Amino acid sequence: MDLLGVAHQLHEADRTRLEQVREFLQARIRRQSIEFWNREEFPAGLVRELADAGLAGVQLDGSSHLLRGLLHAEISRADVSLSSIVGIHNELIVGMIDALGSAEQRESWLPKLTMFQAFGAFALTEPDHGSDIAGGIHTTATREGDEYVINGAKRWIGMGTIADFALVWAKCPESGAVGAFLVESDRPGYSATKIENKIGLRIMQNADISMENVRIPVENKLPGAVNFASANALLMQSRAWVGWQAVGAMLATLDICTAYAKDRQQFGQPIASFQLVQQSLAEIAGNATACLSMMMDIARKQERGELEMVDAALAKSTATRLARQTVSLGRALLGGNGVVTDHEMAKFFCDVEILHTYEGTYEINSLIVGRALTGVSAFV
């Protein structure tokens, strides 16, 4: 079912690529990811296959924003955790080094990153500062001769236990100026501890990062990251990307529930013949279609260079809200089978809870929209 005839809005070569990636993800990733999710384990082999499919460097391969968004939706349709790994890697690591890094940093890291031969971590959030991080960065970078000395802690850092380096946002203790620093994970004083027992995105290895007198050369400062606005520009694009993740999760819900309804027999007939089941399927399809249409418009704005933070915030908050409703309908439709990962729906149900919160909580993104509508800020 090609909702909205999306494939026909792509050039033939892009349409062929999207179809090939979809087939690969459904055959090689969707079911294979379940046990890794259950064990909270990083699937190195599956990630290598994602690289072989060209998904480690989609940020720089010249794809249109629409094709990139649809590719991210297809990854999420197979597994939301892996879509987070691929998306954050592209949007916030590859994208940040390409846009804000020095020529030397780009030359050193981008060839390896775009093949998943190296991994980075985007280190912004701190233990005591999440939504208010723009004015609450406590991590410091002190210049001492030809080095910076980094001190502080970061929390909820994706890929933190695996990454070869972290892009650490820190401030100068004297001037208060905020910048970004490439901190290799093998430097003395740097440690990363996995956050255990998450209910969702269990494949993504989130970490607490501690830095105590970590010394890096001055060349490790990203020259383009001159203030927090640099981070905000990246986060705007990343928030829009989460909307595509939500679309993928809703498409997966439609896939799972439609197949289940046709196969599951109750009262001597497939439950697909029941009115309440068909109503749920129609609502799931409606939510997915509405959000897919919205995200296609977001992609067009990105192509024109017109995306604003309010657009990204509206897309992220709306898509994740409707995705949350959608997976709830899906979990209920599967009954008891909806609470075990064998039938997949439970996994998507839990993963969407994380989408609703990360890359700016639902509430914060809603308030960004409210501020744009009223001209009055409800938060500092």
Rank of each mutant, 00 (worst) to 15 (best):
E23N: 12
T289K: 15
C291Y: 03
G243S: 08
D79V: 03
P127G: 04
S108C: 06
E23Q: 14
F119N: 05
R155A: 09
P127L: 07
H343Q: 14
N365R: 04
R22F: 03
E144F: 10
A290W: 13
E107Y: 02
V340G: 07
C350L: 14
G57Y: 04
I137F: 03
V247N: 05
A285V: 04
I199A: 13
D311Q: 04
K221Q: 08
N287T: 05
L25C: 09
L254P: 01
E196S: 15
S377Y: 02
S131Y: 09
F24S: 13
D164L: 03
L235S: 04
L367G: 01
Q237A: 11
A249Y: 01
D351M: 07
L182G: 07
M211L: 11
T142E: 05
R15E: 10
L355P: 09
R331N: 06
L82P: 10
D164F: 00
V242N: 06
Q32V: 06
H356S: 15
L124A: 10
P217H: 06
I368L: 07
D128F: 13
Y190V: 10
T326R: 04
R371K: 07
V376F: 06
Q278W: 00
A166I: 00
E212M: 08
T142K: 02
W244A: 14
A44P: 01
D351Q: 10
D52N: 10
F379H: 13
D79F: 06
E303Q: 13
G360I: 09
V340K: 12
N206D: 15
A252G: 05
W241M: 09
G370Q: 09
L167Y: 03
G101W: 00
G179H: 09
S210I: 11
A192N: 05
G360C: 10
A259L: 05
K171V: 09
A207N: 02
E306W: 10
G62D: 00
L60W: 01
S131G: 15
I97K: 01
A180L: 12
A229W: 03
E344D: 07
A163G: 00
R187G: 07
L322Q: 12
G158Q: 04
C172N: 15
P43I: 12
E74G: 02
A378D: 06
S328V: 15
T161F: 00
E353H: 14
R77P: 00
E306Q: 15
E35P: 04
F348S: 11
